[in-house]
């Protein structure tokens, strides 16, 4: 479904991605792991069309989307849940959801999806008229996911969904991700520092280091990989 082939992205004179290749299959959950400044965010921004790669290609659903602009990427069916949730703090929860559907014109379908979100994420209904900035971090994460789903994506990219949330809440979020994946056949790319958590739901994972994929394997193999255990899983 999503395929990156030897992608090189530069920020001015900084070579941020040094030939990244990865794939996310249809209905698959894949995690992209790595520490700070390893290129995780740049990979995401390259997929979303926020930065243009200097070489290499991004293919989505059989189409080359390299260098397309962000609105077209959303149209193609990729929606991100940004790091730290990034609510529109002074818009109501409902207005936030409506913004998620910005590229859609099917009023009836949007209304139906709002109801659907109310089912999956009850907070989007119970706090519909409240300014999103006044919600708790966990509630905001729910709204952020609902908002991204309002675009009816085929691929959801989640950037650090566990950041700043309690372990219990992280579990809730990840359970929801699994359920969405099963129910809707949604492909999900989870970009995470929390490797344990991310690998517990993913089928495969990639480890990025200074802009390069250093390990690519199944989730089980990664969890048992001694190099991984030492560097990312906190097992000596």
């Amino acid at each position: 479904m999503l395929q990156l082939n030897d992608v090189h992205t530069w920020y001015g004179s900084v070579h941020a991605l040094r030939g990244v290749s990865l794939t996310v299959g249809e209905g698959e959950i894949v995690s992209l792991l790595g520490g700070n400044a390893c290129g995780k965010s740049t990979t995401m921004k390259t997929i979303l069309g926020w930065v243009k790669p200097r070489s290499g290609e991004v293919i989505f659903g059989g189409q080359r989307i390299t260098g397309k602009r962000p609105p077209q990427i959303v149209d193609a069916g990729i929606a991100p849940v940004l790091e730290r949730r990034r609510m529109f703090p002074q818009l109501t929860v409902r207005e936030n959801l409506m913004m998620g559907a910005w590229r859609r014109r099917d009023t009836a379908g949007i209304a139906k999806d709002i109801d659907k979100m109310a089912e999956i994420f009850p907070v989007t209904a119970s706090r519909a008229g409240q300014a999103a900035g006044t919600l708790s971090g966990g509630e905001q994460q729910m709204v952020a996911m609902a908002r991204a789903l309002m675009a009816r994506p085929k691929l959801l990219i989640m950037d650090e969904p566990s950041m700043g949330l309690s372990p219990k809440f992280v579990r809730t979020i990840f359970d929801l991700i699994i359920e969405l994946n099963r129910r809707e056949g949604l492909s999900i790319l989870v970009v995470e520092q929390n490797a344990n958590m991310a690998l517990s739901i993913a089928s495969r994972g990639y480890v990025l280091q200074t802009g390069e994929v250093v390990i690519a394997d199944t989730a089980d193999a990664l969890l048992n990989n001694p190099q991984m255990q030492k560097a990312y899983l906190g097992i000596a």
Partner: peptide
Amino acid sequence: AQDHEAAMAMGVD
């Protein structure tokens, strides 16, 4: 106005 990057993520030009 509140968060132009988040707006961009929604596909806003």
